[in-house]
Each structure stands twice: as C-alpha cells, then as structure tokens.
Computed example of a mutant assay.
Amino acid sequence: MVGAVLSVGVLVGSGVVAGVLFAVALSVLPALFAMPAERYVYAHRLIGRRWDPTMPVLVLTTAAADVALAVHGGSGAALFAAAAGLLAAVSVVSHFCNVPINRVVKSLDPERIPAGWHDPRPLWRRWHLLRTVLALLAVTVNAVAVVV
C-alpha cells in the first residue's frame, strides 16, 4: 500500500516539476526575452516570488520518495534510484546555477539598470533548459519504474 501511494506521489511530483519547468521554457522565457531590461527585471521579480520554497520542496520531496521506493526494492528499484538522481540534479542546477542569477536580478532596481549591465537571460535559459530536460527524464523514468 505504501509503495502504491509513493508511486503515485513520484508520478505527480515529478510530473508537476517537469510541467512547470517546461511551461517556463515554452512561454515565460520567450516573454522575458522580448522585454527591455527594466521590464525584464520587474517581471522577473514578480514571477519569482512564489517559486521559493515551493519548487525546492517539491523537487526534494519527490526525490526522497523515489529513494524510499528504490530502497523498498522491487523490479523498478534501479529506475526509482535513477529518477531520484535526476531530480537531485535538477535541484543542484537550480541551487547553484539559476538561483544565484535570480538573486542578482532581484537585487536590481528596474528603474536604475546599471550602465554596461550584463544581461543574464541567455545564461539563465541554458541552465533552465538543462534542468527542464533532467526533469522530463525524471518523470519518464518514474513512469517506466511504476509500470515495471
């Protein structure tokens, strides 16, 4: 019974993570790229308000459930372990690559963008696309693990 509940949990959790990251890549990022710097900073500050701590908690809770399923054993154990690793990688990319950029952008005053400002959007997009691919792989691996 616990295994079934955790299996549903990892499917929902990894599905939401992948879906949110995919939606940001598909719609939010192009919109942010279309904005001049001051609007981008303003929008970035608004959009980012609710991600923390929701996404880190969701990613890490889902990874922990994957670990529990891997430890529990069974035919999908290796796959659940792989999904946990992929979600951990999502967390690492977020924490060490995207979040530092977010902090810099959030520290800016949209009305006073410094001269010579280095636009972080291309770098942020590269890291975001990496974690999106990792999240999509995690939900796929979880789905296969549940079916096995």
Score class of each variant (00 low, 15 high):
26 L>F: 01
114 P>N: 06
79 L>E: 10
17 V>Y: 09
35 M>H: 01
104 V>P: 00
132 T>M: 10
34 A>G: 10
102 N>W: 03
17 V>C: 09
17 V>A: 11
131 R>Y: 01
75 S>W: 08
144 V>W: 09
116 G>V: 05
87 L>M: 05
89 A>R: 09
110 P>N: 03
74 G>W: 06
63 A>F: 02
68 A>V: 10
124 W>K: 00
80 F>C: 13
86 L>N: 11
13 G>L: 14
8 V>H: 04
148 V>L: 12
38 E>C: 07
79 L>P: 10
147 V>E: 03
139 V>K: 02
122 P>C: 12
137 L>S: 01
68 A>G: 08
123 L>G: 11
39 R>Q: 14
51 W>F: 14
114 P>K: 07
14 S>R: 06
14 S>A: 15
133 V>R: 11
9 G>H: 07
7 S>E: 15
106 K>N: 13
55 M>F: 02
95 H>C: 09
62 T>V: 08
141 V>D: 04
125 R>E: 13
7 S>M: 14
23 A>L: 07
74 G>T: 04
127 W>V: 04
65 A>L: 11
37 A>N: 12
106 K>W: 11
120 P>F: 09
3 G>T: 05
19 G>R: 11
23 A>E: 01
112 R>A: 15
50 R>S: 14
96 F>A: 11
82 A>C: 14
